[in-house]
Design a protein around this nucleic acid. Structure first.
Lengths: 156, 156
DNA sequence: TTACATGCAAACTCTTTGCCACCAG
DNA sequence: CTGGTGGCAAAGAGTTTGCATGTAA
């Protein structure tokens, strides 16, 4: 997560993983991707799938629908409210903003589903981490992977 | 998750866990709760903490800030969009609703943070699962815990 | 030729579970 | 009494990682 990747090499495995991921709107799990990719590359390992999903996520080619950290967090306030998550230090804070229940009804109308609740989280940097980032990278240089995967796999 | 609990017994452990959970707004992990509770009940086990957090979550006394299922899901479409999660079958679908980036700016103003993005998920029942629920429970009876924990630990 | 990437399996982390003693109702 | 509950430790599930080998550039 901290390591700066020199460049991202184009491999058969990575190519197929990205293609499989792009081929569906079903928000697959790593294991589903693994099973799909195996149809084409029977010898690929699950570890490779995980490694590549991580690289793709870090380089912005894919989204990971998780809570960031691997473990659950609990909230003793059971009434719905929104959260802000600092992507650097992991802190979770409540957002003092009214809950928009009207959105639930809108989704019900749009999709024919029954909505019980929604959850809204904002991701970014808390004030303290903003300050530290400015200190470490005074000239606005992002500490992302040096070479975006876009170069290897043009989307356009 | 399917089992209907007869009643929820009042125990020292459950009492302290709930109190600890209510005592903070820091959205703690199970392990943090464990460490806190241990200050008062040094012999409590982590398993008990997990069991009780689960019971509290199921009975609506607490929220679990996780993605529901234990594993991550990935999304090959990296541009932000919203999701609907069926709480019964686990299906995840895109919500055809425009992304409200203005909310990010509002949170930045409210909290002094820098918001990079937000994530919004709706939870409920997909049409297929609604139908199945109606079939199994024709009279609208919720298959929740029979006795809410509210009875044992009045909040009001 | 030189790093980065892969395959494999072992290791890790977080969470759940089986078992039996225990105790609240 | 009796069945939910706790402690403990082992098992599970998902994910990560170390190492030797392979391979793109």
């Amino acid at each position: 997560m901290e390591r700066v990747r020199g460049f991202i090499r184009r491999t058969k495995q990575r190519e197929v993983i990205l293609r499989v991921l792009r081929s569906t709107r079903s928000h697959p799990t790593a294991d589903w991707v693994y099973q799909e990719v195996r149809k084409e590359l029977p010898n690929i390992s699950l570890g490779t799938v995980y490694r590549n999903l991580k690289i793709l996520t870090e380089s912005g080619e894919a989204l990971e629908l998780s809570y960031g950290s691997s473990y659950s967090r609990f909230d003793g306030v059971a009434t719905n409210h929104y959260h802000f998550v600092c992507e650097r230090c992991g802190r979770v804070e409540d957002v003092p903003m009214p809950v928009d229940d009207e959105k639930d009804r809108a989704v019900e109308r749009l999709m024919g589903v029954k909505v019980r609740q929604h959850r809204l989280e904002f991701y970014g940097l808390c004030p303290a981490c903003q300050a530290e980032m400015d200190q470490r990278l005074p000239h606005g240089r992002a500490d992302r992977a040096e070479t975006a995967l876009d170069e290897a796999y043009p989307t356009h």
